[in-house]
Design a protein around this nucleic acid. Structure first.
Lengths: 194, 194
DNA sequence: TCCTCTTCGATACATACTGTCTCACAGATG
DNA sequence: CATCTGTGAGACAGTATGTATCGAAGAGGA
């Protein structure tokens, strides 16, 4: 007795619809994601799309949420290496037009929509606490001066922020040079030999 | 013999439509700006809106362009003062939900639309050269170390970028403390006594 | 003031889109 | 093989979009 949520047919059509919705979002913006366009692109019935997502808002939100989940992830290696790695991955994502479309859509809708705000928080909410722990460990090891662990969010903002600025407002391709120089500039005040 | 462009009636209806379009954009996003909604809000005929803007894209672009023209403007006062003032004004604008809506819309559409890219460049294109001159003058006066004038864009990115990050991705209200600390951090490497 | 030109709002109209419903069919389960 | 259940196709009403037409009123020159 299969139910709506675990029936292979439902999973198939749902996945096809979400993939199509993401494509359409990237190609033509959020107003391009309608039940009709998604159904046509996904090769499924229009009624099926309505069954899964009663309104277009829910459809768009699911398409947005499915793509951009983990934006920063830290581990136990030296702080500078981690920052360079993470910032480079971030730059690489931002260099893809699709990421800008999706991020800008989330930012725009988050101003008015509760669900979009939730998605936005999923992207960066966890990063602060994780990185705080990373910084604390680095202070323990003597990599950074004491107090650094209280500025996790500031550090991230001063590295990722300029990347956003260059990509969003100048439309440039983000290069590794920029990433490295941003990381070093942000870290400089906390190096022990400074 | 009045023509389309200088007839007071045409100017009136055009202005009313643009004002209404901006309101609707801020309230409900770009998909909320249609010929019908604009006409109703502006109290003018639907056909009139079609007369001025044959397609919705053109209408939206004009509404976007009319609002966010001069984002940074520099003069001859000391560099740090100017940066603090400009960054504060920027923070003040970003704190208003309408600015985020409009900026995010421009960013999103600039990825695909030529006109939106033009608007984006009007916002920041001039800032680089203007600020380069400001920095050069400051170097002359001994306020900054030589070479600073070649990093105008970097400086702006390292001040405005983190503001964008905090506002766009964390949704926080931007405070003066943050602005000042960003300006000082960005300027630190170029101070003569460093 | 009067006359002429242009834009205006209102309306009508064809077409396209949206959201809901029904139904026969095929895939999934046991 | 028998029985559910999600599916695609299509019908349908209601709404939105885009265009054309018309009389009314504003604008500017005589």
């Amino acid at each position: 007795m299969p139910r709506t949520n675990d029936d292979p047919r439902a999973l198939r059509s749902r996945a096809a619809a979400l993939a199509a919705a993401t494509e359409l979002l990237v190609e033509g913006g959020p107003e391009n994601v309608t039940h009709a366009t998604v159904a046509r692109r996904a090769g499924i019935g229009r009624a099926t799309v309505y069954r899964h997502w009663p309104d277009q808002q829910a459809l768009l939100i699911d398409a947005l949420a499915g793509d951009v989940r983990p934006l920063l992830a830290f581990d136990d290696s030296p702080v500078r290496d981690q920052l360079v790695t993470q910032a480079e991955q971030m730059a690489h994502r931002l260099n893809q037009p699709s990421a800008v479309s999706i991020l800008a859509t989330v930012i725009q809708r988050a101003e008015r929509d509760e669900d979009a705000r939730r998605i936005r928080e999923e992207m960066f909410g966890r990063a602060d606490e994780d990185f705080t722990r990373v910084l604390a460990a680095a202070v323990e090891r003597g990599e950074l001066r004491p107090g650094a662990q209280e500025h996790a969010r500031d550090l991230i903002a001063r590295i990722i922020g300029p990347l956003l600025f260059e990509r969003f407002l100048h439309g440039v391709h983000l290069e590794k040079d920029l990433v490295v120089s941003l990381v070093d500039a942000a870290l400089a005040p906390w190096l022990p030999n400074a």
